[in-house]
């Protein structure tokens, strides 16, 4: 029972995980992007449409990433090159992305993904895994999942290695911490910002695609239902760290399905209140995070500041 619940929590956490990573890359280069929700929706609708057309999972994911990044490109052009206010630009991206997804999605309503597409994303079953005592069922939470979930874990781990062990990772952290210093050190700040905002967009697109291709799987209006926003909060909760993001995503994935589970157990709990849970939990997370401020838990110092080399 618990194993089953945790398994579902991992699944429900996967779109969050992608979105957290996406938001994290934005913030690590100093850009607070509130357009996560919009980019997720763009990815969700593009991925779904591509899947219907091509019947090919790679093409579906590719399109999800491309459209997520296209949203990010608008944001990057405005905030980095034209130095607009990041908050308002991000909000606009969300409005724009939501509108575009809704607009295009109307044609996709009621469509079903072909069976031979969906079979690519069936959970794997690993032989003998359950025969390992204690560890077996535990591992199955993470391992007996579909390939998309695997992709999420791999993305998180690769992001971590990239961020903390590589040269570009060091440079990108520098850009977020002090853009002017990074620039003076010879880092091409504009390029770093563009690349990582776009990368973030691609990850958000994947997060959206997981919802429309695997989780639901069909097109629904507002399919993300605020997950993009929860991700923005969870970046803070997980201290801009991709490894911690895995834990944060699973935790909130669990909260997301809690209501569902409890109802299926015939425990009389109000479903509307249960649906408030993730939002309420996010608020609590933010409040707790702000009350106990530790030095390890501070955002990149140049987060939200526009940068212009010749500003005096």
């Amino acid at each position: 029972m618990l194993i089953l619940f945790l398994k579902s929590a991992v699944i429900a956490g996967t779109p969050l995980l992608f979105a957290i990573l996406g938001a994290m890359f934005n913030e690590r280069v100093g850009n607070l992007n509130l357009g996560i929700e919009g980019m997720m929706l763009l990815g969700a609708v593009a991925g779904f449409q591509a899947a219907i057309y091509s019947n090919n999972p790679f093409i579906a994911l590719l399109f999800a990433m491309i459209f997520g990044s296209l949203g990010a490109l608008i944001y990057a052009f405005l905030t980095v090159t034209l130095r607009t206010n990041q908050v308002v630009t991000g909000l606009t991206l969300t409005i724009f992305g939501t509108g575009l997804a809704r607009f295009h999605g109307q044609k996709l309503m009621g469509m079903v993904l072909p069976e031979d597409f969906s079979r690519h994303f069936k959970p794997l079953s690993i032989p003998f895994l359950h025969e390992i005592p204690v560890l077996g069922p535990f591992l199955s939470i993470f391992l007996e999942q579909d390939l998309f979930v695997y992709l999420g874990f791999v993305s998180a781990i690769l992001s971590g290695i990239y961020l903390f062990k590589t040269r570009p990772g060091l440079n990108l952290r520098a850009v977020g911490e002090s853009t002017a210093s990074a620039d003076a050190s010879g880092i091409n700040v504009t390029l770093y910002k563009y690349i990582h905002i776009l990368l973030g967009g691609a990850l958000c697109g994947l997060g959206g695609a997981y919802l429309s291709l695997v989780y639901v799987p069909s097109w629904q209006e507002n399919i993300t239902s605020g997950r993009g926003w929860i991700a923005v909060a969870l970046v803070i909760f997980t201290s801009w760290n991709p490894y911690k993001a895995i834990g944060g995503a699973i935790l909130f994935g669990g909260l997301d399905i809690l209501g569902f589970r409890i109802q299926s157990l015939n425990i009389p709990v109000n479903q509307y209140f249960l649906r408030m849970m993730p939002y309420l939990a996010t608020i609590i997370v933010i409040i707790i995070g702000s009350i106990r401020k530790s030095s390890r838990h501070t955002p990149p110092k140049d987060l939200g500041n526009p940068y212009f080399r010749e500003e005096r």
């Binding site: 040269r167 060091l170 952290r173 911490e177 002017a180 050190s185 880092i187």
Partner: peptide, 18 residues
Amino acid sequence: HFKLIDVLTAAENILLSE
């Protein structure tokens, strides 16, 4: 005003953008 990143070490700062 020094162009150094506070949260990084001296070595990391020296190696930036190399």
